[in-house]
Every structure is written in structure tokens, then in C-alpha cells.
């Protein structure tokens, strides 16, 4: 078997692993127990596997695990412990009822965090664009947009 050694820091913990070259970052993360990274379409369409790789949001199902070698990955769960914007988003999602089945939630929160990190404002149209790569089949999106709007508004007011 052609396996390669990789070292990836996930949610602050360094992980050494042997992986096949074609393994996706998504399957690697779930194999390591990061079950908050959901496996949806595995084609880049649904966005529920979104994580932050080296500071940028990516869909982990269309990223090779090997490409994360030497890099840093943050998932929704890890960000929820260390990152203030994510903490607020998680709370706002609960308060706004933006979670029904919850399957899209980790990806939605990471996409929302990336939007606010990049200077995104409390603008419903812009928020819709920011989560356009994330599918939700329960909520109709309104409550998700409301939750991100709420956090963006509070953060921009503080600045």
C-alpha cells in the first residue's frame, strides 16, 4: 500500500497518521474521531464538512488529507472552545431556532465564522451569499441567516 505520513494539528492537538494519498480530509478527520465534521454529499455541494484549513474555510471532502500535512485544521467543535465568534454563533443558532435536525449546523457555523472574520457585516443578502455553499433541508435558511445577522450586528456595533 502506498501510504504517506502526515502531521496535522487539529483543534490544537498534533496528530501523526499514515494515510492513503487519495484520502479526503473529511474521511481523515472523521477517522480521527472528529465527528462534528459531517459527511454529506462528498462532492463539494452540501458544505456540511466545512472546516478552517490554514486560516481559510474549505470543504474537507474536496481537499486531500495529505494536502493538510504540516497545517492547522479547526472544526466547529474546536472553534466553539477557543474562538469567540464561533461561541457566539453557536449560542445564536440555538436562540434563533436555527437548528432542526442539526446536520448542516457545523458547516453553517464555520461558514458564518469565515464570513464575519473576513469583515462581513449584518447584511442579509451578503450572509445568504456567504452560506450559498451550505445546504439546509429543514429550516428554510431564514433562522440561520437571522442567527448570523444577529452576531454580525453585535460584533460590528462593538467595533
Amino acid at each position: 500500500m502506498n501510504e504517506i505520513n502526515i502531521t496535522v494539528t487539529v483543534n490544537g492537538t498534533e496528530i501523526n497518521a499514515k494515510v492513503k494519498p487519495e484520502l479526503s480530509l473529511l474521511r481523515f478527520l472523521r477517522g480521527q474521531g472528529f465527528y462534528d465534521v459531517k459527511c454529506g454529499c462528498e462532492m463539494g455541494d452540501c458544505g456540511t464538512c466545512t472546516v478552517i484549513l490554514n486560516g481559510q474555510a474549505v470543504k474537507s471532502c474536496i481537499t486531500l488529507a495529505a494536502q493538510a500535512d504540516g497545517g492547522t485544521v479547526w472544526t466547529d467543535k474546536g472553534l466553539g472552545v477557543c474562538d469567540d465568534i464561533t461561541k457566539r454563533l453557536q449560542k445564536a443558532f440555538v436562540e434563533h431556532g436555527a437548528i432542526q435536525c442539526g446536520f448542516c449546523t457545523p458547516g453553517m457555523i464555520v461558514a458564518g465564522k469565515a464570513y464575519i472574520d473576513n469583515g462581513g457585516r449584518a447584511d442579509r443578502e451578503e450572509i445568504k451569499k456567504a452560506i450559498s455553499g451550505n445546504l439546509c433541508r429543514c429550516t428554510g435558511y431564514k433562522k440561520i441567516v437571522d442567527a448570523i445577522f444577529d452576531v454580525a450586528e453585535k460584533i460590528r456595533k462593538q467595533e
Binding site: G47, A57, A114, K129, G133, N134
Partner: peptide, 9 residues
């Protein structure tokens, strides 16, 4: 093009 997350890659 696609969506903002895919555009990052």
C-alpha cells in the same frame, strides 16, 4: 463561481 468556500480552494 461556485460559492465562497469552494472559491478559496
Amino acid at each position: 463561481f461556485a460559492d465562497p468556500t469552494t472559491r478559496n480552494s
